[in-house]
Design a protein around this nucleic acid. Structure first.
Length: 357
DNA sequence: TCTGGGGTCCTAGGACCC
DNA sequence: TCTGGGGTCCTAGGACCC
């Protein structure tokens, strides 16, 4: 085990999707831009994926229903999610970032962790590395990012969010406690709406409250997460920066424009979803074993049915047959369907599969 | 004639991340 | 206000094996 103190950077691109759209279309500059579902004059059913700072001035936020965004800011420029474009830009940025790291971990399209413990001797040098990174990304891609530096991933991640956009926040070991203590628990990773509410019931609202809570109580209430929460609140995070190796599952969901019971539409949609997933499987050379179908009814109630096959397959027909079979169970309910989803999991690579035969 | 204990796999649901 | 689509991980019960 290496005893050297760790120095971790978290790089977070500023409002990534809308920043790319602004760059590609200079005439959008200075105007509110919202990337997400089609607003359909306020009748759209998706959510806001990303919005720029001009749109945020009107109260628009990511994750918000697109219909609400329309009410707040009808004159914004509404754009669909151009995932292919963002993925290309992301690839180039990750390539830049990787050069600066001893160890590298991509986190979604627009974030990454860099362990620079060897490349930088101390936090001051790490700060210089961060400045270089920002400079190179801006020169090559005309995009800005916010960077947090800390003794572990947890602190780096929270630090990158501290000052945005185009921020740079350094939190050294000795400063971790005073940095974290005043924050609301919601700022910690894995604390979402539900966990925040349950903590509040226990009288825990700030990170300081959580750090001073009884870990036994937390473990009882939250299981593994309870221990994790206690450690995080005390600034402890030993998780390594490491690139995730293999994908665990692959799926596609579709929300209908209107809730439906139309058997023809349902069958066609299931076919399309299966075909899309099959394409991605072939591209990655994967065989799968488990199929899951997801249905969301008109009242947002969501259920899944899944089936594990006796052996691995990569055949489209196997996928479709099982998807239809699993969906049948849902259709018997005669309730209108809002969303359909198909997911496959438990993979094996084609090379390994061939060895099995 | 009332039944152990450990391990693994499968299924369903739910919270959370970006 | 009315809730996307891409994922990961955890929990809990039941089946099944030895």
């Amino acid at each position: 085990m290496d005893k050297r103190k760790r120095i971790i950077l978290h790089v977070d691109m500023d409002h990534f999707f809308t920043a790319i759209e602004e760059r590609e279309n200079p005439r959008y500059k200075g105007k509110p831009i919202i990337v997400g579902a089609n607003p359909r004059q306020g009748r759209g059913r998706g959510v806001v994926s990303t919005c720029n700072y001009e749109a945020r001035k009107f109260g628009v936020k990511s994750g918000m229903p697109i219909s609400k965004a329309w009410k707040l800011c009808p004159h914004a420029i509404y754009l669909p999610v151009n995932r292919g474009l963002y993925m290309n830009v992301s690839e180039r940025i990750m390539k830049i970032l990787r050069k600066y790291a001893d160890k590298f971990e991509r986190w979604g399209l627009d974030e990454a962790f860099l362990d620079v413990s060897f490349k930088a001797k101390g936090f001051d040098e790490a700060k210089e590395v961060a400045k270089k990174i920002k400079k190179e990304i801006f020169e090559k891609e005309r995009l800005t990012c916010s960077i947090g530096i800390g003794p572990n991933k947890l602190v780096a991640k929270i630090a990158s969010d501290h000052e945005k956009p185009n921020g740079l926040t350094v939190v050294k070991e000795g400063e971790v406690r005073s940095f974290l203590n005043p924050l609301p628990v919601r700022r910690l990773p894995w604390v979402g709406e539900k966990t925040e509410a349950r903590l509040k019931e226990m009288g825990i609202e700030t990170v300081k409250d959580l750090a001073e809570a009884n870990p036994i109580d937390l473990k009882e209430k939250f299981g593994v997460l309870g221990i994790q929460l206690y450690l995080m609140a005390n600034g402890i995070d030993r998780s390594e920066v490491e690139e995730k190796k293999e994908i665990k599952s692959m799926g596609k969901d579709i929300t209908f424009e209107e809730d439906t019971l139309n058997p023809k539409l349902i069958k066609e949609t299931l076919s399309k979803l299966s075909e899309e997933i099959h394409k991605r499987l072939v591209k990655r050379n994967l065989y799968f074993k488990t199929i899951t179908v997801k249905v969301r009814y008109d009242n947002f109630e969501t259920h899944t049915h899944s089936k594990t096959l006796l052996s691995f397959t990569n055949k489209l027909q196997d996928l479709k047959d099982n998807v239809y079979l699993l969906t049948k169970k849902f259709l018997e309910k005669k309730r209108k369907i809002r969303l359909l989803g198909v997911r496959v999991s438990r993979f094996i690579s084609s090379e390994k599969q061939k060895k099995l035969i």
